[in-house]
Amino acid sequence: MLRYIIRRILGVPFLLFGVASVAFLLSQSTKGDPLSALVPERMMNNPEIVSAVKAQWGLDQPLPVRYVIYMKNLVQGDMGTSFNTRRPVARDIADRLPATLELVTAAMIIGTTFGMGIGLLSARFRYSLFDNAARGFALLGSSLPIFWSGLIMLYIFSVQLKWTPGTGRLDARSTPPEHITGFYSIDSLLAGDWALLGQTLSHLALPAFVLGWSVVGIVARLVRSSLLEALSQDYVRTARAKGAPERVVLINHALRNALIPVLTVLGFTFAYLITGAVLTEAIFSWPGIGSYAVAAARSLDYPAIGGVTIVGATAFLLANLATDIAYAWANPRIKVSG
């Protein structure tokens, strides 16, 4: 198992190399004027300025030369400087990624906990009132567009009921905790600032719920159907015949086997949300990587597009690895070759 994991980890840089190459070549061949973020409109008629800016940003070099320079810098951890923010892309990502990871982690905890709970109870009490209501709740979560549910939730819980604060990671009047991990919840905890921790969690609750609700629907439906299938298997009947309590049958026998497809979905959902939580980030003014990716794509910010692609690819590769490991944990009969 350990050898398998090490081998997979060693393969990650090579995969990332491929992804970075494809991202670089695709973005460079996309239609559009990359100078739009660099050269003001009024200066576009000035060839001296245009050529100076091109030289400054390396855009005057042929594509193969640009590619070699980019990859060489990338190997040294330099993703280039963003056309939009004029800061190193690595710094932008380091600033924004913790915000997204904090949000997505919280959303996944909510989505997994509620999704599995609802799926389990729905399977146990199939076709009951609870089953129908829970399935309706889950269906709403996965079918309501986030831009709508987010705004409605904000209106109800923040504007009307005043149960939750407004948008952002913290009240704009507050000072963020000292940067240690970039996760405000962890950093305020490490600083022992309980008031700030409370504020962080209260700001996190609503966006995490909105994002997590969409995960609830996916997980609940999958757990329910997998469980129902598992419950009809011979080994479950055997366990029941041997007098095992229903709770043990459900959790120890059926759920563990039903988890395998769920783990696959959870892994990839987590990875997807790293760059895919754009709408939640926009509505809740959450300064994460999703909104950074959209801004980069809209303005043809090549270095930022490359950086975000690498982050997204890394997330998927790690999620894939974590899922494989979780498979082995969930079902020891699944062996990994190593």
Binding site: L151, L154, G166, T167, G168, A172, S285
Partner: peptide, 21 residues
């Protein structure tokens, strides 16, 4: 003074109503 990023008109209105801004 803090100028804080709020993307759209409706979100800005809600933030104003809650007193966040």
């Amino acid at each position: 003074v803090v100028i804080t990023q709020i993307q759209d008109s409706v979100s800005q209105a809600q933030a104003l109503e809650t007193g966040s801004i």
